[in-house]
Each structure stands twice: as C-alpha cells, then as structure tokens.
C-alpha cells in the first residue's frame, strides 16, 4: 500500500465518513427510537443527551462532502448525481431533524409535530445513507468523467437491504447510547431495545456480507482468494467478539461496554467495506490514484488537516468530557 498523497487523503476521507457514521449514527438512532418512548418527559431526556454534541457530529458529514469535492472532485461529481434522489431525501430529512431539536422547545401545541419530524427525519436520513451505500457497493456507471446511468439505478433489493441494515444499526447505536447516558426506566427500555436491535443488526450484517461478494467479481476475489482471504476469517472473528461483548454488557448491566461494542460492529463493517473497495473510490470505475485532485490541492489542504484534525478531535473530546455522565431526569421539571 503506497503512502502517496492520494492514498493519505483517501484515508482521511474514510476516517471522516467513519467518524460521521458512528457519531451521527447514535444521535440519528435516538431519533429513530422516538416512537418507542411515547412520554414527553422521556423524549426530553433523550434529546438532552445528544443536544450538546449533535451539531459537531453532523459536521463530519460536511467534511466528508466538502473534502471529497476538494481532493477527489471527480468522485464527488459522479457519485452525487448518481445518488441524486437518496441524497436529496437525506438532506431534507436532516433539515427536519436538525431544527426539531430547538423547535420542540419553542411550542406547546406544535411540539408533537416536531417530535414526528425528528423521528421521520432521522429515519429517512439513516435509510437513505444505507441505500446510498448499497448503490455505491453495486457500482455506478461512469463515462468520460461523468455519471452515465439512469435516475433509478440506485434502487435495488440490495440497496434496500443495506438501507435497512444501516437504519437498524443506528437504532442499536442510539439504544446503547441511551443505556450509557440515562438511568431508570428509560435505560431499562433502551437495554431491551438494544438486545433486539443488536440481534437484528448482526443478522443484517451477515446477509449483506454474504450477498455482496456475488454482486461484483472484485469483492469475490478479495474475500475468497489468498492472500486477502485472510481478512475473511479475521473480520468475522472480531465481529463475533463484539457481538459477545454487546450481549455480555447488556445482560450484566454494564453502561459503557454495549456502546463501545456497537461502535466496534460499525468500525469492523466499515473496515470490511474498505477492504472490498481498495484501491477503488468508486468500485470498478474510479481508483484512488486516477480520481485524485492535482497535487497542489492535496498538499495545500493536507498541511491544514494534519494540524487541524487532531486539534478538532481534542476539543471535540473535551466537549464530550464536559457533558459526561448521566442525564438528570428531573432537571428542568421540578
């Protein structure tokens, strides 16, 4: 694996996307779980648990998008038109859920509608992200540096399956986050939900993993031919370890362990995707090397990223630290 600028940048973009998926994943997940917590009070606690951090979490999505345009412009310019509809619906979903945080406090009568908006927006965003992922895995038709497919190419049984998998996975992240941040009845319910969502997530990961090698020859080669087949044993083993940690944490009343285990499931699945994709940015169509921006762009932005990304991680970590601990369920309501 060469350590040239394009590869380094592919790594940074992958990191931004992963950071987005696990961070916004848990707060989208909290939104997805809203209907299972019908009491206004419970929902207040749930939104309070993510309110100080969701904005930062979502900024990773902007870095993924803006960064892609900067360092792999042709990927940005082909993938987004190909995924036109899922992307637009995702953005509209994010609009609804983003404003719901503040708006639901600004009204008595209308509050329930913003709760509905929070749930629908979160769920649509998650579903569309999963569908976009599935469509990307299936491949995108590109000719002469631009998208050459149709408007419904993204829709397939496989992309619907990945959409479902991501949605359920986010629900798992949300449930384990609530298990970490809340107490009492909310926590107990979150734990029960996490058990179900955890099982469902594992099943869906399994189905997607077994299906994808048959979608494209590249993936089959990658997973069933030596030496890369090494991963085909390695990744599932680690997945099983995370699954056990999740089950163990939930059944023995651990608060942090299930959340970390759920994060582990996402990181491993993401690593699996990375193994399948490399050295492509768009499977079968654009490699990292051929889609990279001119070296002057990569170098210019890397100078900043090298300093700024660690700084960002430091103060983001600080913000999480400031708001650590359980949410006081009584706060604001006595």
């Amino acid at each position: 694996m060469p350590f040239d600028l394009p590869t380094v940048w592919a790594g940074i973009i992958a990191f931004a996307v992963l950071a987005y998926v696990i961070l916004d994943g848990f707060d989208l997940g909290v939104g997805i779980l809203f209907p299972l917590f019908p009491k206004r009070h419970d929902r207040d606690v749930m939104t309070n648990s993510i309110a100080p951090v969701w904005d930062g979490n979502e900024t990773w999505l902007v870095l993924g998008g803006g960064g892609l345009m900067a360092v792999f412009p042709v990927v940005y310019a082909t993938v987004l038109p190909a995924l036109y509809m899922p992307i637009i619906v995702m953005l509209l979903g994010l609009v609804f859920r983003g404003v719901a945080f503040e708006f639901r406090w600004r009204t008595q009568r209308g509050s329930i509608w913003w709760d509905v908006g929070f749930f629908v927006g979160s769920t649509l965003a998650a579903l569309m992200q999963g569908i976009a992922l599935g469509a990307l895995v299936q491949g995108i038709r590109i000719a002469d540096r631009s998208y050459a497919g149709g408007w419904w190419d993204w829709l397939s049984p496989f992309s619907i399956l990945t959409g479902l998998a991501v949605t359920v996975g986010y629900a798992l992240l949300g449930a384990t986050w609530l298990n970490l941040k809340t107490s009492g009845e909310i926590q107990a319910r979150a734990r029960r939900i996490a058990m179900v969502a955890g099982g469902a997530t594992l099943v869906l990961i399994g189905v997607v993993s077994l299906w994808s090698p048959f979608i494209n020859e590249i993936y089959f080669e990658r997973w069933f031919r030596w030496p890369t087949a090494f991963f085909s044993a390695f990744v599932p083993t680690l997945l099983a370890a995370c699954a056990f940690a999740l089950w163990h944490g939930l059944t023995t009343d651990k608060h942090l362990q299930p959340f970390l285990a759920a994060l582990g499931l996402f990181v491993l699945s993401f690593a699996g995707l990375g193994i399948s994709f490399y050295p492509y940015m768009v499977p079968g169509a654009l490699t990292i090397a051929e889609s990279a921006a001119p070296e002057s762009s990569l170098a210019f932005l890397l100078v900043g990223a090298a300093v700024l990304v660690p700084t960002i991680l430091a103060y983001t970590g600080y913000a999480y630290w400031v708001f650590r601990g359980k949410i006081d369920p009584e706060e604001g309501y006595h």
Binding site: D44, N48, P52, F323, E331
Partner: peptide, 8 residues
C-alpha cells in the same frame, strides 16, 4: 430549552 446534561 434543552437543559442539556447536568450530571448526577
């Protein structure tokens, strides 16, 4: 408003 996260 959201009175985020006072810890126990």
């Amino acid at each position: 408003g959201p009175h985020r996260a006072a810890g126990i």
